[in-house]
Structures are given as C-alpha cells and as structure tokens.
C-alpha cells in the first residue's frame, strides 16, 4: 500500500468531501420544506390538490433519482430550466428526498394515537394548533429517526452528481483512480470519508432524538 500517495491525495479528497456535505445539507434543508408542503397538500380539503400531491410523490418515488437528475440537467433547457451542475444537484436532490420525507413525516404523524387528536380538539384546539402543540411533539422522535435514514441516503445519492461533473467525493475518487492507478488506496480513503460523513449524520440524529424524547416516555 502506497502511504505517501494516500497522504498526498487526502487534501483533494477532503475538499471534495466538503462538496458532498454541502450539496447534501442544502438538499436536506430545502427537502424538508418541500416535504412539509407535501404533507399539508396531502391533507388539503380540495380533492384535486390531494391527488396532485399523491401523484407527485408516487412518480418521484417510482422513478430513479439518477434519471431525474439527467432529465433536469440535460433536458431542463428544453423547458427553459438552465441550472449549473451544483444547483441542479441541490434542486433535484431536494425535490427527490422531499417526496420520501413527506411519507416519513406522514407516517410519524399517523403513528400518534388518534385519541390525542380527539382529546385536543375536544379542548377547543384547532387543526393547526393541535398539530403544533399536541401531535408534533409526540411524532418528533420517530420523524427524526426516519429523516436521519433519508439524510444518509441523500449523502450516498449525492455521488451520482459526479455524472454531471460536480467535483464531489465520488468524482474526485474516479479521477484519482484514473490518474494514479492505485484504485485500492483511493477507494479506501474515499470510502472512509463517506463513512465519517454518515457516522456524523447518525450522531446528530441520535443527539436530536435524545432531545426530542427528553420529556416523553417512549
């Protein structure tokens, strides 16, 4: 094993890893709002709105993220959508993970006993106030866990933006394999960086989960 080479390429890979983190974090951030909107739309009183939201979720979950990425990046200009690679990665990532996240959020909300809703409404709380004060605090722990799982998927999925030449971890790894002819060394280092990122996400999720369950008995 070529230790010197590994030391040499580490800065390049760290820099690329930061792009991976950056793109994933932004997609997660925007994805959360998209997911919240989808949850709201799915419980709308107007049936066509509900159907539209459901259709969107179904189509996004039913097609490959990779094809979505290619469609928007290469096909986007045909519908007047010109995005630079990085922005495209963030946007497609957010709209993709948003569909999955809305299902996770809905699942967490539905896991709260329906008696809680009835009790709150009988006290005179409105729909939104019930959601905010009664349902969400109880749904939060499960929601945090499921979003955590999705965040990890998002990090792994972000490797696909290398195809539209965003210089993130997988892109850099592929280039270094080609230029150094040391696939094992490059693979080990870049794998290690993914592992560090994923464990950091798991750590954050665990921290938030503990905070969310501090006052509840689960």
């Amino acid at each position: 094993m070529d230790i010197n080479l590994m030391i040499d390429i580490t800065p390049l890979l760290v820099e690329a890893a930061w792009v991976t983190v950056d793109i994933s974090a932004r997609a997660l951030f925007f994805g959360f709002f998209i997911a919240s909107a989808l949850v709201a739309l799915r419980t709308s009183r107007i049936p066509p709105v509900r159907w539209l939201a459901r259709a969107y979720i179904s189509v996004v979950r039913g097609t490959p993220y990779f094809v979505q990425l290619l469609l928007i990046f290469y096909g986007g200009p045909a519908i007047g959508l010109r995005l630079d690679p990085f922005t495209c990665g963030v946007v497609v990532g957010a709209f993709n993970i948003g569909a999955y996240m809305s299902e996770a959020m809905r699942g967490a909300i539905e896991s709260v006993d329906s008696g809680q809703n009835e009790a709150s409404r009988s006290l005179g709380f409105g729909r939104l106030a019930t959601l905010q004060h009664i349902i969400m605090p109880q749904a939060a722990p499960l929601m945090i866990r499921s979003i955590g799982v999705l965040a990890i998927i998002l990090v792994k999925n972000s490797s696909l933006v290398s195809i539209i030449s965003v210089v993130e971890l997988t892109y850099q790894a592929q280039r270094l394999i080609g230029s150094t002819y040391k696939p094992l060394e490059v693979f080990m280092l870049s794998a290690l960086m993914y592992i560090v990122i994923i464990y950091a996400v798991m750590g954050i999720v665990e921290f938030l989960y503990r905070r969310a369950t501090r006052y509840t008995f689960l």
Binding site: V155, K156, N157, S158, S159, L160, S162, L169, T170, A173, Q174, I177, G178, Y181, P183, L184, F187, S190, A191, Y194, I195, I198
Partner: peptide, 21 residues
C-alpha cells in the same frame, strides 16, 4: 457494513477501474 455505508457508484468505479486493472 462497508457495502451499506458507501455509495453504489463508488463501489462500481472501484470494481470497474480497480479490478479491471
């Protein structure tokens, strides 16, 4: 564990360009 904590594409590149060497 390794297969589950790293992206598919990275694994494919390693196999394709790596083993292919």
């Amino acid at each position: 564990w390794l297969f589950m904590t790293t992206p598919l594409l990275l694994q494919l590149y390693f196999l394709y360009f790596g083993i292919g060497e």
